[in-house]
Amino acid sequence: MADKIILEIVTPERKVVSETVDIVVAPGEMGEFGVLPGHIAFLCKLRVGELRYRQGAASHQIAVMGGYAEVLNNQVTILATAAEAAVEIDVIRAKAARERAERRLAESKDKFDFVRAQAALQRALARLKIAER
């Protein structure tokens, strides 16, 4: 059995990560899950949140904006709507987005607006959390 896993994160815009790593922790819809070598075949939906992976002593964080994950034969494939590594995150923009979303949440009347604002807020928070570490 291999003692490494291959991690691939792809979005419609680009391939974000393609590396050999030791462990992956991803934000599943029903809770965070960790993947170590030898994991069972697994398919799951992701929520907006933080994905971590470790390569030897170095650990990395990626903001993932929802999507799907597949684990198969020590290979983890993440299909994300959008994904950004900590260094790529535009903190100013994310902060602006957070404020905008908070304002909308406070103002919004109908349910549709509320849900949208909530999703926007979640995305902004996920980005900020990783960027500010």
């Binding site: 599943g28 819809e29 029903m30 899950f33 069972i40 075949a41 697994f42 398919l43 799951c44 939906k45 799907y68 198969l72």
Partner: peptide
Amino acid sequence: PFEYLFEPSHQALLTDL
């Protein structure tokens, strides 16, 4: 066909996908 573990469920995933 691999035996997958699905989360939340096979049907929910496919409907979403």
